Simulated assay, not measured.
Amino acid sequence: MACHRYGLRCHIVASTTVDATMRAQLEILGATVDAMPPSQSLRLDQELRVRHVRRLLAERPDFHWMRQYHDQVHHEGYREFAELLTAALPRGPLTVVGAVGTGASTGGLARALRESGRSVRLVGIQPFGSVTFGSERFEDPEAIIAGIGSSIPFGNVRHELYDTVHWLDFRHAMAGAVGLLREHAVFAGLSTGAAHLTASWEAARDPGRLHLVLGADTGHRYAERVFTRHAEALDPAGLRPRTIASPADLRPPWSVMEWAGRAAPEAARTVEGDAPSPVPTVELLP
């Protein structure tokens, strides 16, 4: 959409979660879309995209790589959003709840809000199988929750910004997404469903605090894999996380830990000065 607005060409290396409907929208807006083959593994899906992007960069030196997972400038994009929230929300302590993903949306927003003087508690959400907060030893074979975790280190995730981390499996994210539609008529994706379920639990523990849920996308690309299975969805009211004190205690299907600004796990660290592994989903061409 940004490329369309500013007259830039756009080349997208799409995750397996990008379905035919979304691909059609992207192509109508003028993007070139390279779709990856179907995959049941977050790690395999990202590794296939990494290899493909490396080939593209080798063949086309005129490509500009946005590096949204690694360039620190992407955090700055949330300052204007923080200003809008400051003007729209009542004063007082705020808890921001959202999928970690690249780290820019939750981290960038929380940092900008804190710098404005507001007391902000940041709650991040991860899937099982993501290296970002140490759940890579698990696999969730039912589905890939796009935009929430990663099988490789992301330089834009600033672990010290997070107060609390929740890890949820597919079935809990599905319960949150279906429950969000039933309760509020909001048709949103799995990462938003996971955020809604998490925020509901967090708000019940601290009802006097304002909780802000970040919703990443609509539910359209999850219509067949999630919403047509609504009869299977768990009742959110009966779901509770397991509270853990260390990543070593992590267990599916839902765990929560007071991260308290800890440093990144060893496997999630990027080496200072090294070029990070490329995993772009968008390429801008002049």
Results as ranks from 00 to 15, higher is better:
residue 70 H to Y: 11
residue 247 P to M: 13
residue 14 A to V: 08
residue 242 R to F: 11
residue 71 D to F: 08
residue 259 W to H: 03
residue 244 I to V: 15
residue 7 G to H: 02
residue 137 R to G: 01
residue 65 W to N: 11
residue 4 H to M: 14
residue 140 D to M: 01
residue 14 A to W: 08
residue 235 D to W: 11
residue 124 G to Q: 02
residue 120 V to D: 01
residue 105 S to R: 03
residue 163 D to N: 15
residue 118 R to S: 12
residue 216 A to H: 13
residue 270 T to G: 06
residue 94 L to I: 09
residue 57 L to F: 07
residue 39 S to Q: 09
residue 172 H to E: 00
residue 96 V to L: 15
residue 81 F to H: 11
residue 108 G to L: 06
residue 49 R to E: 08
residue 195 A to P: 03
residue 56 L to Q: 09
residue 216 A to D: 02
residue 263 A to T: 14
residue 7 G to K: 03
residue 74 H to L: 04
residue 204 A to P: 02
residue 93 P to Q: 07
residue 226 V to W: 01
residue 272 E to Y: 04
residue 199 A to G: 06
residue 56 L to I: 12
residue 202 E to I: 07
residue 174 M to N: 00
residue 221 R to S: 12
residue 158 R to Q: 12
residue 216 A to G: 14
residue 180 L to Y: 06
residue 265 P to F: 07
residue 101 G to D: 05
residue 102 T to Q: 06
residue 22 M to S: 06
residue 281 T to D: 13
residue 81 F to L: 15
residue 201 W to T: 00
residue 223 A to V: 09
residue 235 D to Y: 08
residue 222 Y to H: 12
residue 276 P to Q: 11
residue 4 H to G: 03
residue 161 L to R: 09
residue 209 R to L: 11
residue 220 H to S: 04
residue 161 L to G: 03
residue 87 A to N: 08
residue 153 P to M: 08
residue 248 A to E: 14
residue 63 F to R: 00
residue 56 L to K: 07
residue 183 E to C: 02
residue 207 P to E: 08
residue 115 E to L: 15
residue 203 A to R: 13
residue 253 P to F: 03
residue 219 G to F: 07
residue 210 L to F: 08
residue 221 R to C: 11
residue 72 Q to P: 13
residue 275 A to M: 10
residue 102 T to K: 03
